[in-house]
């Protein structure tokens, strides 16, 4: 529901401090913040940025996989992929609604995306070159997303936490269908196995980059952790992802493309090689393989649909006017 923007006038600094202390206390006590509750302006702005970028990622994230719907190798795989891509649209919509409770309009968010003011996950700027990429995305990209999203089901902002619960329930299907697809390829012909290995080679590092820069370089972390809108650090989540995924790759008979990867018995974790952060920042800045194409596709979809959106509003207006006239 739309947030009721609480007009606090211009209170004194001390009053604001006291209010903010009460706010932080609520969060520390594990009480959820709801749309109508008072919140610091920075909390509101940070959440709008985080949730809207998350929503944009779901929407843009339909494109790399959508690329393969018409070329799926069987009717079963096609139906599964269609359902998965439709879920991503749904996830985007849950998240846009959650962001709107903070007082930003849907159209404003869409406009921010199309104007390049808002970001989306940089992973979706990589191309899907083969059918195996659909499997790798479900397994690795959705796998990373789940790792990141499960803690958010407990985040301090109620509408966001509730949206994440729905999203996480559905993401488990996405990851499994991806692994199932990889399994089919891994048990297939040498050419299919090679295709699976090639997909892992290309998606492994970008999937680890999804968790964001290393903790030392992460700009928003400390405050976001205090506000409980980020519950684990980027590096903690990345390590969890590596630990979970390596045995899964081994089961597939695939090799993780990292010569430095090895089990560290002392730490109880896998050690892994250095990530090419230059590539990450380059893609974030808009220079990935598909940045321009992705945004262009979104803009075109929005522009091409404009006449239709307006026609529906006109129709709804006329129908309402007719109903009023009839009643009078």
């Amino acid at each position: 529901m739309y947030a009721q923007m609480v007009d606090t006038g211009t209170p004194s600094a001390a009053a604001v401090d006291a209010q903010e202390a009460r706010f932080q206390q609520r969060i520390d006590d594990g009480i959820r913040i709801e749309a109508q509750d008072w919140m610091p302006e920075r909390y509101r702005r940070t959440l709008i940025r985080q949730i809207s970028q998350h929503a944009h990622s779901e929407i843009v994230g339909q494109l790399p996989e959508g690329n393969w719907i018409t070329r799926a190798p069987s009717l079963k795989r096609k139906a599964i992929l269609l359902a998965k891509v439709q879920d991503e649209a749904g996830h985007g919509l849950y998240l846009y609604s959650a962001a709107e409770t903070l007082g930003i309009s849907r159209d404003q968010m869409v406009d921010d995306l199309h104007a390049g003011r808002a970001k989306y996950s940089s992973i979706f700027n990589y191309p899907t070159l083969t059918w195996a990429d659909v499997g790798a995305i479900g397994w690795l990209v959705d796998g990373s997303a789940i790792m990141n999203q499960i803690p958010l089901c407990r985040c301090s902002y109620g509408p966001y936490a509730r949206a994440m619960i729905r999203v996480c329930k559905e993401e488990a299907f996405h990851m499994r269908q991806g692994y199932d697809l990889m399994l089919a390829l891994a048990r297939g012909t040498p050419a299919q196995q090679a295709m699976a290995q090639d997909a892992l080679n290309r998606w492994w590092w970008p999937s680890l980059m999804m968790f964001g820069p290393p903790d030392g370089d992460s700009v928003h972390s400390a405050q976001s952790q205090a506000w409980k809108i980020k519950l684990f650090t980027n590096d903690e989540l990345r390590q969890k992802m590596v630990d979970q995924t390596v045995p899964q790759a081994e089961y597939l008979g695939l090799t993780v493309p990292d010569p430095d990867l090895k089990w560290n018995a002392e730490r109880g974790h896998y050690d892994f090689g250095a990530i090419d952060w230059e590539e990450f920042y380059n893609v974030v800045k808009g220079n990935g393989p598909c940045n321009r194409e992705r945004l262009e596709t979104r803009r075109r979809a929005w522009d091409d649909g404009e006449w239709f959106r307006e026609a529906l509003v006109a129709h709804a207006g006329k129908a309402a006017a007719r109903a009023t006239a009839k009643a009078a």
Partner: peptide, 11 residues
Amino acid sequence: VGSLHAPDATM
């Protein structure tokens, strides 16, 4: 369960 945008009740 949540909210959404639509031009009228049927949609």
